[in-house]
Design a protein around this nucleic acid. Sequence first.
DNA 1: AGGGAAACCCGAACGC
DNA 2: TGCGTTCGGGTTTCCC
Length: 268
Amino acid sequence: MPELPEVETITRKLSPVLTNQEICSAELLWDGSLATPSPKEFCQILPGQLIENVSRRGKFIWITLSQYHLLIHLRMSGDLFTRPIADPIEKHDRVIINLTGSLSLVFNDTRKFGRIWLTRDPELVLGKLGPEPLTDSFSAEFLHTMLKEKHRQLKPLLMDQSFLSGLGNIYTDEALHIARLNPLRKSDSLTIDECIALREAIKDVLHEGILRNGASIDWVYKGGDFQNHFRVYGRKGEACPTCGAMIEKILVGQRGTHFCPTCQSKEE
DNA sequence: AGGGAAACCCGAACGC
DNA sequence: TGCGTTCGGGTTTCCC
């Protein structure tokens, strides 16, 4: 579930707490595959590393250490938070990184989809990510050019992290609704005016998500309240906030897709 | 090249 | 009440 706004919210919260802290030990409570390196190496490398910076790239949380980079992808059900070092282990804790102060940094993940990388070269992990939608260079003209280079369904393309980084299922549905674009439109069929609307919608929906501290859906990631402001996501059968027609749910690229058949009609 | 499907995983929600 | 089944969400990988 965590998409760009949720990851941004977590990052903003952790940055002032973690920056300049030193890691004293790490433990992995993990039976499955942690991408790199092996759990043993992981726990050997971390002690003594200083946390220099906490930021975000796409949906990855990026923790810069003195000699390594810790990259964390929360996927669906992951969460990252601090708690007093003396507190007991919670259900679904996967990684616990103890700081020299009184805090632990905890990676908790119910569904074990999340992944962590510890590497000297972050580009190995982040290299294929597409552009960030919240930068000035993400202009309508740029988006138009990008879309013209592909001939794909609009929604799966926007969710493709190598095309654009940060959008997941929820914010994509919301953005397409605001821009009044059908999720099945072929990417190279959009006019420049439609790209202007789409770029604005993507920025607006991400900014609103960040402003509301993300969306708390399922039992994952608590704190935000954007879920109470969704226009179409999870609202199958309800009235479209724009035109009042009934919101439909279809499958697009194997993903549940919510849209208004009237103001997001396929034509044009 | 694009798109469909399966795999990964587990708790919640649903059906009976 | 309790059991079994289905579902969803992000990504990768494989296949047509």
